[in-house]
């Protein structure tokens, strides 16, 4: 499959954004327009001469990829185009589920024919690893630092796919960089379905999470295999398919201990209780989605 996201950008080795961008374009093909809000992806892959995009690409403000995508889609309709050109918004977790939430909500509620792909690396990486609404429970970031009075981020991740499902979207799927074929398949399906569709891609960040640059895929797989990141598809509000974990099931420690952002959980007094809480989050996912 030809990649329309070329090399030569300034992403870190093992960069999750670059991988998701590449797989997204493999799925969408040449006839698409990509809208990206501010973030690592935009900064490292668009300024001349390091431009990696071989498809039309529009930058939006941090908070309004949903609105810009709505505008592009409306303009295509005004030109008489009938869904042949795919409109894809590709934003990070901060741009998607924090500051950009309102404009995505508007786009989905109005029913624009767009596909929104959230690259979820669970913090604001471009500005220096500050917590976001997608930062998992107990992760240490620059604004939720673990220390004497804190085990890190005090709240679990915001459940964005459920919020998008509540908008009546015809297709929502979670996916992971651990499973590129799964990602390409789901994004392709999303772009082929009429109406606003949402893909939430779990994307481990080597720099922000603190793991070796060769381990992006391994870390991503472990998030799925522990149950911390369930892979599922929802059509018209109902879960229609899940990826079972089965015999691959791993304890959450296997996933957490690979990452610096969780290292305090293996050092601090009383952290054992925290590990149990995180295991409970994974177990609940496994139960809720029937992953076993």
């Amino acid at each position: 499959m030809k990649s329309l996201f070329t090399s030569g950008h300034r992403g870190c080795a093992g960069c999750c954004d670059a991988m998701v961008a590449k797989f997204t374009l493999m799925a969408a093909g040449e006839d698409c327009i990509v809208i990206s809000p501010t973030g690592c992806l935009e900064v490292m892959s668009t300024p001349y001469p390091e431009t990696s995009w071989e498809v039309p690409w529009v930058h939006s403000l941090f908070e309004n990829a949903g609105a810009v995508a709505s505008g592009v889609e409306a303009a295509l309709k005004a030109m008489g185009k009938k869904g042949d050109t795919k409109v894809i918004a590709l934003g990070g977790d901060g741009a998607t589920i924090d500051i950009g939430m309102r404009s995505i909500s508007g786009a989905f509620e109005r029913g624009h024919d767009i596909t929104y792909v959230c690259i979820d690396n669970e913090a604001y990486m471009n500005t220096g690893v500050q917590r976001s609404g997608a930062t998992p429970f107990d992760a240490s970031t620059t604004t939720s630092p673990a220390g004497k009075v804190s085990y890190g981020n005090p709240r679990p991740k915001k459940n964005m796919p459920a919020i998008m499902a509540a908008h009546g979207s015809p297709y929502i799927a979670t996916t992971s960089l651990g499973y590129p074929k799964d990602m390409i398949k789901k994004i392709k399906k999303a772009t082929e379905i009429e109406g606003p569709t949402y893909i939430h891609a779990h994307a481990p960040c080597t720099t922000g999470w603190g793991f070796d640059t060769s381990k992006t895929v391994e870390v991503a797989k472990l998030a799925v295999q522990t149950g911390l990141w369930p892979l599922y598809e929802m059509e018209n509000g109902e879960v229609t398919k899940v990826r079972k974990i089965g015999k691959q099931k791993k304890p959450v420690e296997d996933y957490l201990k690979m990452q610096k952002r969780f290292k305090h959980l293996f050092k601090m007094e009383g952290a054992g209780e925290q590990l149990k809480l995180i295991q409970a989050l994974a177990d609940k996912n496994i139960e809720d989605f029937g992953l076993e």
């Binding site: 604001y124 471009n126 500005t127 220096g128 500050q130 604004t143 939720s144 630092p145």
Partner: peptide, 20 residues
């Protein structure tokens, strides 16, 4: 606050020192 370069250290420092 909310992160933005080149002001983010103000946010970091506040998150570290204010609760202390």
């Amino acid at each position: 606050g909310y992160p933005i370069t080149p002001a983010s250290e103000i946010l970091h420092e506040a998150s570290r020192t204010f609760p202390q």
